[in-house]
Amino acid sequence: MTRDSDPRPADERGPNALVLADVRRRFDGRAVLDGLDLVVPHGQLVALLGQSGCGKSTLLRIIADLDREAEGDVFVPERRAVVFQDPRLMPWKRVSDNVSLGVRGDDVGARVREVLADVQMTAHARAWPATLSGGEAQRVSLARALIRRPDLLLLDEPFGALDALTRIKMRALLAVMCAKYRPTVLFVTHDVEEALIFADRVIVLDAGRFTFDEPVALDAPRRRASAEFQTMSERVLAALGVVDSS
């Protein structure tokens, strides 16, 4: 598999933040990803939906460069960051040291303070991860991704392990953060509403292929109750093979 990173400064960069060409991945001869093509322009917020085991996490791991056994071509920008479902903070580093881990430059301290303020975790800068709640830990994880100013932000069901109330707050925070840091986002989720509220474009992965790929043409603010929202939601659910009779 070839893999090109983009070392050029932002004004010289190309039009896209992610390009996949005929990406395939087999596990023991079984094709989990079966020829995926995708072009994501800079700044787009893409939600990737799919049922459990459809290969969406596999795809995310390939794009995050954690799985090098896939076939096909993957093109990603130099600056990428991942937020996993579990926060994956280093328990032996205080919050601020977790955020600055792997960040170089002489203004690291100031950048850490800024990004922790952004996610409203300033008061916990010196805390150990073990003392944080699930939502707080995930906010730190988001800060750790954003301090790198990623061109491509990969989110692997980042709110999947959070309680419903925290999830609502985290969605709002993520929207604010994306408005400020303007990354291209690939957001893996299994929550159709979450996808439709957040994303510019919704893709459905089913049995290793993209079976649905449409822009979300809903006016802001997006309201769940609106007829357009309901129609779109039903179409995405149909693509997922789910009939919601409620």
């Binding site: 460069d65 954690l66 960051a81 994956r88 792997g102």
Partner: peptide, 16 residues
């Protein structure tokens, strides 16, 4: 292993 993976996505090299 998940922490090592996270470290990799943060751009840490082998020594780091």
């Amino acid at each position: 292993d998940r922490l090592v993976e996270a470290g990799r996505t943060l751009g840490l090299n082998r020594l780091a």
